[in-house]
């Protein structure tokens, strides 16, 4: 669904690349996560793939269209949810969706149905300018679903939302993914990426460092650890043991057999820890 080869982009049109020789492919029906801190090149890549930024160098094919000269028809297959909500403040939620709906040449979803999905049906006839940041974000998200997109670009879809609404949005994404939509998710939130994506790519300073599934990355880079808290007389002690090293497993066994255990839980490496390990930088 997406094919990117030797993609370069420079805002200053010199050798200071915001996207530097990026290569990847996203298969039809796949949920692909693009992970990186702010300024890593995620949004620039998405900008090129959605035609918002012009192609400079390299190859990018989206839904079968070459991004050097994409046809406007391509956008019948695409849905784009922006990180910064962008709706007409002077129009109501319903008017916003009704307007954008009429710009597509394909079958669209009823705006009222979408407002119901994102929990905005009770404010359908209120001006978007009166909405909170989270409500505007949900309206932007709802708009991206209007044309039942085959390829769905989601830029930080849950940022700034309260946990209950964020879970609702995640459920919608999971459902669309199950239905066969291809998802290109741009985020710095590794929990979302871990939960939703079949594969993730780590990008930093415009360079794509690696691509793999979250499971493979955890197996490859993670350590299987057990954190434990136990009583040694009147004293509470904390310790961490590897489940791979024989010596540490024996120590853990000893503690379990001889001490009163207060707390114990397994600890896998998170995507963030793996990201730091691979890139040497944090995700924020």
């Amino acid at each position: 669904m997406i094919k990117v080869e030797n993609l370069f982009y420079s805002y200053t049109k010199d050798s200071k690349y915001a996207v530097d020789d990026v290569n990847f492919e996203v298969a039809k029906g796949e949920a692909f996560g693009f992970l990186g801190p702010s300024g890593a090149g995620k949004s620039t890549t998405q900008g090129i793939l959605t035609g918002l930024l012009p192609m400079q160098d390299g190859l990018a094919e989206v839904a079968g269209y070459n991004m050097k000269n994409p046809s406007r028809k391509m956008f019948n297959k695409l849905g784009v949810s922006f990180e910064q909500s962008n709706v007409y403040g002077k129009l109501t939620a319903l008017e916003n969706l009704e307007f954008y709906r009429k710009l597509f040449d394909v079958e669209t979803i009823e705006p009222n149905v979408l407002l119901e999905i994102v929990g905005l049906s009770h404010v359908a006839n209120k001006k978007a300018s009166t909405f909170s940041k989270g409500m505007k974000h949900r309206l932007t998200f709802a708009r991206s679903m209007l044309n039942k997109p085959e390829l769905w670009f989601l830029d930080e879809p849950t940022t700034g939302l309260d946990p209950a609404i964020a879970n609702q949005i995640k459920d919608v994404i999971k459902e669309k993914s199950k239905e066969g939509s291809t998802i290109f998710l741009t985020t710095h939130n590794m929990f979302i990426a871990d939960e939703l994506c079949d594969r993730v790519g780590f990008i930093i300073d415009g360079v794509l460092k690696l691509i793999d599934s979250p499971r493979n990355l955890k197996l490859k880079y993670g350590q299987k650890l057990v954190d434990i808290e136990y009583k040694d007389g009147n004293e509470i002690k904390k310790d961490s043991f590897s489940l791979i090293k024989e010596e540490e497993r024996l120590k853990l066994n000893h503690i379990i057999n001889n001490y009163e255990i207060e707390l114990m839980h397994t600890k896998e490496a998170t995507l963030e820890e793996i990201f730091i390990k691979v890139t040497g930088r944090g995700l924020v």
């Binding site: 959605t50 918002l52 406007r72 695409l78 962008n86 709706v87 007409y88 710009l103 708009r143």
Partner: peptide, 14 residues
Amino acid sequence: EEGTIRAFAVTPAK
């Protein structure tokens, strides 16, 4: 400023 121009740009409208 509102960003609506970007939302328009990702529709098939010209």
